[in-house]
Structures are given as structure tokens and as C-alpha cells.
Design a protein around this nucleic acid. Structure first.
Lengths: 146, 146
DNA sequence: GTTTTTGCAAACCATTTGCAGGGTC
DNA sequence: GACCCTGCAAATGGTTTGCAAAAAC
């Protein structure tokens, strides 16, 4: 889905070094379809025999999240996961069956948020909308919800 | 803010036993102002000399969250926290300075979500909107963001 | 009296950190 | 060559679990 190069470019733009382990992690992320946990990548790495240490995976994910090349999301279960994404404000719509996620542009949500701010008197600095459901493919498959 | 009895009633409605430790936890939740982590309650309990075990706190929180008497939220930092709330669909607006949270009713968000579903073809089952900012009190205080 | 709940401590799991060696710019 | 990055393994911190005793219904 995402090109590993995009991730590497993000690192480069951020002034970080382009190392082999980071390339590995970028490739692993790209190979993933839906959302993934840090532990998934660690497993993938070991399975592929790629010598990428646990710590490096975590450090690289943190780096990429800071650069907004990937995003950290919270599943309804409370688990943390990551999804690759474009660097612009948006939200994620995650399929609860296959884990694949779609990006959703802000639309009129911004207006809604602004209205809420006015109504409550809060100065709203950030917001996060997370949507969960079944993607079209899984609906057709009649797959059960997780 | 919330009455401890409301929490106990939720337990009762769910067919759970009304025990002393659960009453303690309910009281501790009520005594809290903003959001809190499970660990906070454990500390509170020990500080008060109330004999409530760590495990019981976690189990009671999970129970109450399942009953929707409290809600589990995810802070921007990735930490998990809970807030007491009314049992109806709504969202939380959390103050990043004092941690206090306001409930926000759905408003036109429902329409937005429906539109997103139509546009993407996903069957959206649930959504979660989390808002972070400064509450009116903290704005007046000129408190810095965390 | 039966069934649920508790508390403890140990187990667990994800994530972080210190540090010496190695790679990148 | 200087500085950044990696890997390891150990530390950490939050959360869960097994089990016998205690409490609720």
C-alpha cells in the first residue's frame, strides 16, 4: 500500500540516517496490510530472518510516528496499533475483521468540533475520530466481527 | 460528580454482587475529578488504608467499563485512563491541563459518520471521538499545556 | 450451601533503557 | 573521524491470572 521509500524519505527529511535496519522496518510496514502492533513487526522480522532487534523496531516506529509517516491508533480493545498513512490531518476507519484501514478526510467534522468548542467553552487543541466497522470486502465475505 | 450509588446500581443491574471492595472502588472513582488511571485508584486505596487489592481494582474497572458506567479513554500520550460517565452514547472532551472531562452529545457527528460510511462503503459499527484542549477554568488560569 | 469475589503473589506482556560495538555521513 | 544508530539483555511498568479463603445471595 505505502511505498517503503516514502517512509525512508520521511526519515531523510527529518534529518535521520538511512540505515539498513530502518529499511527493513520500512519494508515490513509496507508488507503489512491492515494495522499492526509493534510486536507483529518484531515477529515478522524474526520470521524473515531479518536481524532487526526489538528495540530498533520500537525506536523506528516511534520515529516514524513523530514524523507523521505512520499513525498510532488505539483499537477498541485498548491495544495500540499503527497504520501507514499520508502526512495530513485525517482519521482512520478500521475494519474490525481484516484490520485494513481507510483514511477519511476531515469534512464537516472540523465544523462540528468548532461548534462543540463554542458550546462548552473549551479551547479544543486536538481531536481524534476513530471509526470501526466492516470494510466492503469483508461485508461481502460475510465475515463475523472480531 | 458521579454518585457512587449509580455505579453500584449499574453493577446490580448487571447481575453482579454488591461487595464492600466494589463499594470502595465506586467511592474512589467518585472522589476523582478528572480522568484517572487504574494505578491512581490503587494508590488512593492504599493511601486511605482501604484494603482493596490491585487485582480487584482492575477487575472492577473492567466490569464497570463493560457495563458502560465508566468509559475507558486513550490519552494522546497513549496512556489508558477512565472517566465516569452517563450510560448513553457520547464523547469526551478532556482538559489537557487539569484532566477534567466534559461529556459531549453526539450532535451532527452521527450524520457525519453516516456520510463517511456511505462514501467509503464500510459498514460502520462504532466510532469514538476524543477531544483534547483546555477547559474554561484552566484557560483563565493561563495554565500551560501538559 | 452454592456461587461469586477477593487478595496475594507470581506470571505476563509490551515497551524502555544503558551501554559497547558498528555503520553512516 | 565524529556522531548517530543498533543490538542485546536487563529493567520497567502496567495488567492478568491461579488459587485458597471469605463474602454475598
Amino acid at each position: 500500500m505505502t511505498d517503503p521509500d516514502l517512509l525512508m524519505q520521511a526519515l531523510e527529511r527529518g534529518g535521520h540516517r538511512l540505515t539498513e535496519p530502518r529499511r527493513q522496518v520500512a519494508a515490513l510496514i509496507t508488507a503489512r496490510r491492515g494495522h499492526f502492533a509493534a510486536a507483529d513487526l518484531v515477529d515478522d522480522a524474526h520470521r524473515r530472518g531479518a536481524g532487526v532487534g526489538r528495540a530498533t523496531v520500537f525506536r523506528t516506529l516511534e520515529l516514524l510516528a513523530d514524523l507523521e509517516a505512520i499513525e498510532r491508533i488505539d483499537l477498541p480493545s485498548g491495544e495500540h496499533a499503527y497504520v501507514a498513512c499520508e502526512p495530513a490531518h485525517h482519521h482512520h476507519l478500521v475494519c474490525s475483521s481484516c484490520g485494513r484501514s481507510a483514511e477519511v478526510v476531515d469534512g464537516d467534522l472540523a465544523k462540528t468540533v468548532e461548534r462543540i468548542g463554542r458550546r462548552t467553552g473549551y479551547r479544543i487543541d486536538s481531536h481524534r475520530l476513530e471509526l470501526f466497522g466492516l470494510c466492503p470486502v469483508c461485508q461481502r465475505r460475510g465475515t463475523a466481527r472480531a
